[in-house]
Structures are given as structure tokens and as C-alpha cells.
Design a protein around this nucleic acid. Structure first.
Lengths: 129, 129
DNA sequence: CTGGATCCCTGTGGATACTG
DNA sequence: CAGTATCCACAGGGATCCAG
């Protein structure tokens, strides 16, 4: 784990900076559905309906919307098979897989701190009655 | 439990699963402002106003709201100095720093793929006259 | 300076129906 | 099956004012 303290490099600022392209892309990717989709697509190919089932709780609309966004940014490849009934398959691109690595980190983090967070919430809420 | 795909490790499913605590926490953390705040607090202590300046574009309300959320989940420590005028300092806890590591990954990813994404968007938009 | 409370508007996102 | 389109409710989030 990276605990050492580099003088804050310019790189961070680039992403944090308002109105920059980096900031816009970061914001676009830093949302629940996008991250869950990327996570669920871990090096496998899934169809529209399968995705909806895998990512529980996502609406039809949000799925198609988020997928188009990911596709536009080149994180997801969309392959249409000219059949009847139609079959469309989604899979992560190189860039998508790279992002998934860090998303995986967030999932691991969530799991690892579940108890800690639950406890923290209890303490916090206790001091507010 | 629940996953009809044994080959995918259970760990991922835990976070993806709807209605689970993990999912709720993941969703809470997977948002623009929370991640930007965690990122900007990289092992240093900042005050309310400083935070607002560092994270450009965040409103007063969202800052205080997100900070309270992070504090409740035990990701941020809030220290009030009994002075006049009041001084309140925020810094990441252990858990917060751990999360920041992965957020850092997302920032790095964003920077690394800026050109790739810009290009992908151009191509995508081109096919949508 | 810190931050709560309010007003208010826009965008997000759900449900449903309709095409290919 | 794979979407797109429409309607609509509600919450996210900005601006402002107030208080400790």
C-alpha cells in the first residue's frame, strides 16, 4: 500500500482541476452504475439482459444510458450479431479492464471496512440523539 | 449466496448484491464529491474553507453534506479547535487513507487514458451525424 | 470561520409503452 | 432481445440567509 508521502504532484491537481477534461471524465466515471457495470464485466462478455440481471437493481433506462456512455468513452466494446432475435454483447476494452482493476480495489476496500464503518456509524449516530 | 455463477469469486458478488450493506456503502462512496474530497485530503489536514478552495466547484452545501457523510462512515476525522473564530480541521482516518489509495488509482487511470478517451469520443460522435 | 436551514429549480432516474 | 421515447416524481444540488 502506498503510504509514503510524495510532495503533492501536479498530476493530482490535473484531475482535481475544475473545467478540465480530466475532471469531466473523472466525474463521469465516478458514479455508482458505471463502476458497478465495469466491475461486473470483469473480463467476460455479457448481453444486455444478462448485465441487467448481474447488476441488481439497475433500471432498463440507466443500463442502456450508462452503457452508451461507457461505449462512447471507449471503455466498453459493443458487438451486434446480425441474428433474429438480435444479440448484442458487451465487453471491456483495454482501457476498461485497466479501470476495473482500480474498481476492484474499491470493492475490496468496501468489504474490508464493512465492520469498521458499521461501528463508526453507530458511534456517530449515538452522539446525535 | 445468490450468485448462480460459481466461478466468479464470492467477494465481488458481495459488493454487487442489491440491498446489502456493502452495496449501500459502495454506492455512498462511489460519487464524485466524496472521491474528490478523499483525494484532496491525501495525508494532510485541511480546514473547511481550504477544502472548498482545493476541490474547485463544490458548493458550500455539498461540501458540508459530503463531509458529514464521510465523518459518519469513519473515513474522515473532524477536529474542532475551541477558538474564536472557530477552526475545524479535517483529515483522513486509516480507513480513509486506504480508500484514497484506490482513488489515486482512478486519478492515475484518468490521466493515462485522457487521449484515448478523447479519441474514442471523436470516433463515436462521428458515426452519429 | 463553520455550518445549519430554506427555497427552488434542474437533472436524474423509474415506469411504461413502442419499434426493429 | 435490444433498445428508444415519453411522461413524471423526486432528490440532488445551487444560492442565500441566519446563527454560534
Amino acid at each position: 500500500m502506498v503510504t509514503e508521502r510524495p510532495e503533492r504532484d501536479q498530476a493530482d491537481a490535473d484531475v482535481t482541476r475544475v473545467d478540465s477534461l480530466a475532471r469531466e471524465i473523472f466525474a463521469g466515471v465516478a458514479n455508482k452504475w458505471a463502476l458497478l457495470l465495469v466491475n461486473v464485466l470483469a473480463d467476460r462478455t455479457l448481453r444486455f439482459t444478462e448485465l441487467q440481471r448481474e447488476v441488481g437493481g439497475i433500471s432498463h433506462k440507466m443500463l442502456s444510458q450508462t452503457l452508451r456512455h461507457l461505449e462512447r468513452d471507449g471503455l466498453v466494446d459493443r458487438t451486434v450479431h446480425p441474428e433474429v432475435p438480435p444479440r448484442v454483447e458487451y465487453r471491456l476494452t483495454e482501457a476498461g479492464e485497466a479501470l476495473r482493476a482500480t474498481v476492484n480495489g474499491m470493492c475490496a476496500w468496501t468489504r474490508a471496512h464493512l465492520d469498521h464503518i458499521e461501528e463508526a456509524r453507530r458511534r456517530f449516530d449515538a452522539t446525535r440523539d
